[in-house]
Simulated scan of single mutants.
Amino acid sequence: MAYGGMGRSKKKSPQKKTSIGLRSKITGLWRLAIGWAVRLAFGILAAYLALIVVYDFLNPPTTYTMWSESRRLGGVDQEWTDAEDIAPVMLRSVVAAEDANFCNHWGFDMGAIRQAIDSGANRGASTLSQQVVKNVFLWQGRSWARKAMEALLTPAVEAIWTKRRILEIYLNVAEFGEGVFGVNAAAFHYFRTTPDKLTPRQAALLAAILPDPKGRSAAKPSRFVSNRATAIADGAATIRADGRAACFSK
């Protein structure tokens, strides 16, 4: 019996071979690109972690905001001051104003976040730790990329730095006015004094302008700023009495 074409192998057409080869090349390129993207992401993360370790004992020389404002204004006023040379009431005032549960969280205040979501607020859930990460390592703005980086770096900062160190760095890089960065420059700019000589009222006024440093003045406070400073002074006394200042006090 003759079986005709049985046993003959079917040859793939050149067009099918080209299509399969092209798909294979595209898949290979995607895998290569993903691999390099993952390596780059880990490299960036490792660099940030290295900086966090370094800044545990060396002071950050500048920040992106200070650099950009210096370019815009032709210079900024900022001089580093160790926490030991800042009036303790200044530390308590900033915590009372910005993050009253600073000693009780690990970088994220989940209670404040839930309250902000429930009330639809755009501000109020960011902790001092998150603000330090944003000010020292990242940039201003509300982009998802920045928020994602902030969420990754904040736990590392909390794990490596002490609460006192976080607060010390915050007080030295925070913007207190146009071209005025850090509590040293702010104390002189508004009150012609030094950080160690700040009174409770002066400390509260400085803390009161932090959410809007270019739109508020500590030396000539509006009624709103004055009232807010009064509430901050009360809050600073409260967290000292109830132990919520223990993690950064000496």
Score class of each variant (00 low, 15 high):
Thr154Ala: 08
Thr81Cys: 12
Gly28Tyr: 07
Leu138Arg: 07
Met149Asn: 01
Gly179Ala: 11
Thr238Asp: 08
Ser93Ala: 15
Lys16Leu: 15
Ser126Ile: 06
Asn227Thr: 02
Thr127Trp: 08
Thr63Met: 08
Pro60Asn: 13
Ser217Lys: 01
Met6Trp: 13
Thr127Gln: 09
Ala187Arg: 05
Met6Ser: 13
Gly235Ile: 00
Gly141Pro: 05
Ala121Leu: 12
Asp196Tyr: 10
Phe42Tyr: 12
Gln115Asp: 15
Val183Tyr: 10
Ile34Glu: 09
Thr127Tyr: 08
Asp234Ser: 09
Ile34Val: 14
Ala229Pro: 01
Cys247Lys: 00
Trp67Ile: 05
Ile166Pro: 05
Ala97Glu: 08
Ser9Cys: 03
Gly7Ser: 05
Gln140Cys: 00
Thr199Trp: 07
Lys163Gly: 07
Ala83Ile: 15
Tyr55Val: 08
Ala121Asn: 14
Gly141Lys: 12
Pro155Glu: 03
Phe57Gly: 00
Lys25Tyr: 03
Met66Gln: 14
Gln140Pro: 05
Pro60Gly: 12
Ser222Asn: 01
Lys11Asp: 11
Arg228Thr: 00
Ala236Glu: 00
Gly21Arg: 15
Tyr55Arg: 04
Ala96Met: 10
Arg92Phe: 03
Leu58Phe: 14
Ser226Gln: 14
Ala186Pro: 08
Phe248Ile: 01
Pro88Ala: 07
Gln131Gly: 10
Ala233Arg: 15
Phe108Asn: 01
Lys220Asp: 15
Val183Ser: 14
Leu138Lys: 07
Ser119Phe: 06
Ser226Trp: 04
Arg72Phe: 11
Ala203Ile: 07
Ala83Lys: 08
Met6Ala: 14
Phe181Gln: 04
Val225Pro: 00
Phe224Gln: 10
Arg165Ala: 06
Arg23Asp: 01
Met110Trp: 11
